[in-house]
């Protein structure tokens, strides 16, 4: 009993009454903080780390990103530089350039989405800042093979799978913690 006083425990009557009252308060007040996901989805901040791709023209094929990638998700694909400055697959480039001066060989990164952890180390180590971010993040593929795109496939940023949903942004709220308001 002395222990109880020293510790300021609530007695049974007060404790039960307040617990029930608080429960009831939450029962009647509007206070949901859930995001109703596929119906609403978040408009993510521009600095969100989602799927990303590489700018084919900027990249110089230095392999720094491959080297830094912690889960070794990046593979460097051999490519050749076309006259327009874009790259072509090796065979295609070779046949086009046949006879002319030898095609300049280069490499381009491809990310295995099944391994990538979105740490964005590759992003930050790139000496020419060639990566392009997007904030699409809620995407899953059906097959293992789909996680490993070809370079052409990798260049296309994936589409937002919940494009049709209502876009909301989180705002701090005194009652709910987070309130999702329609995105501006």
């Amino acid at each position: 009993m002395k222990d109880k006083e020293k510790r300021k425990l609530r007695g049974d009557v007060e404790g039960n009454a307040r617990a029930l009252a608080t429960g009831f308060k939450y029962l009647v007040e509007p206070n949901r903080m859930t995001l109703d996901y596929p119906v609403e989805s978040m408009k993510l901040a521009p600095n969100y780390r989602g799927f990303f791709t590489v700018d084919d023209k900027k990249c110089i094929g230095c392999s720094m990103c491959e080297m830094v990638c912690p889960p070794e998700a990046i593979t460097m694909i051999p490519r050749v530089v076309s006259p327009t400055g874009e790259t072509l697959p090796v065979q295609e480039g070779a046949s086009q350039e046949a006879g002319a001066k030898p095609a300049k060989k280069t490499k381009r990164p491809v990310v295995n989405w099944g391994r990538c952890i979105y740490c964005y180390f590759c992003f930050d180590i790139c000496p020419v800042d060639a990566f392009v971010r997007s904030n699409v993040h809620d995407l899953a593929y059906y097959n293992d093979a789909d996680y490993r795109p070809s370079y052409e496939g990798y260049l296309k940023l994936p589409e937002d799978p919940v494009k049709k949903s209502k876009k909301v942004v989180p705002r701090p709220d005194m009652k709910r913690g987070i309130k999702y308001e329609p995105a501006p």
Partner: peptide, 28 residues
Amino acid sequence: STLQYMENRFNDYNDIWAKNPVVEARTV
């Protein structure tokens, strides 16, 4: 505002959790 929200919540946490007689009985 997030911090303020959390501060307001402490009372409710006490009522439902820390000072709930059942929790007191179970943990003291």
